[in-house]
């Protein structure tokens, strides 16, 4: 492993009760970043929000709210980048249409649909792809 790199893998049941736990872990890991010029508390909060949104997408949409499924999360904190990966084993969801919408099209009075917008706004790159046995949502923040 490279110097000062943290690579953490977590598996939780496909249930929203674990959002808080995973979110807190991601905040703690982000607070270990040493090369960030901006507000580290704000960055840690953003990582928590992004991972929460990604987990909810995996739990509710990709894994169809099946409580017997599980979700894998990998958080890698590198010298100049944080990489978040959320793995699901479900049918997946179509990220492309959401990701290619211009920011201005967000509908302020919709109850739903802000999750992927928030992920895209707070991260530098986002992609969702099929892998063996499921899908992975990858989100990168560089600094």
């Amino acid at each position: 492993m490279k110097n000062n790199q943290i690579d953490l893998q977590i598996t939780v049941p496909n249930q929203t009760r674990y959002l808080s736990l995973v979110g807190k872990i991601s905040e703690e890991l982000t607070s270990q970043v040493q090369n960030y010029d901006g507000d580290l508390d704000a960055l840690a909060n953003h990582i928590n929000v992004v991972l929460t949104e990604a987990l909810v997408n995996a739990i509710r949409h990709a894994n169809s709210d099946n409580p017997d499924e599980e979700v894998q999360i990998r958080i890698i904190v590198m010298e100049h980048e944080i990489l978040l990966q959320v793995f699901d084993h479900g049918k997946g969801f179509d990220l492309d249409t959401v990701l290619h919408n211009p920011v201005d099209t967000i509908n302020e009075l919709e109850d739903h649909g802000r999750g992927l917008y928030i992920i895209r706004s707070l991260m530098d790159s986002v992609n969702y792809r099929k892998i063996d046995g499921g899908n992975v949502l990858e989100m990168r923040k560089k600094f």
């Binding site: 959002l19 929000v49 929460t52 949104e53 909810v56 009075l109 109850d111 802000r114 999750g115 928030i118």
Partner: peptide, 15 residues
């Protein structure tokens, strides 16, 4: 801490 679902619950109340 608030996520999109938390915001959504308030938007629902607003509407």
């Amino acid at each position: 801490f608030i996520d999109s679902s938390g915001l959504g619950s308030l938007v629902s109340g607003f509407k």
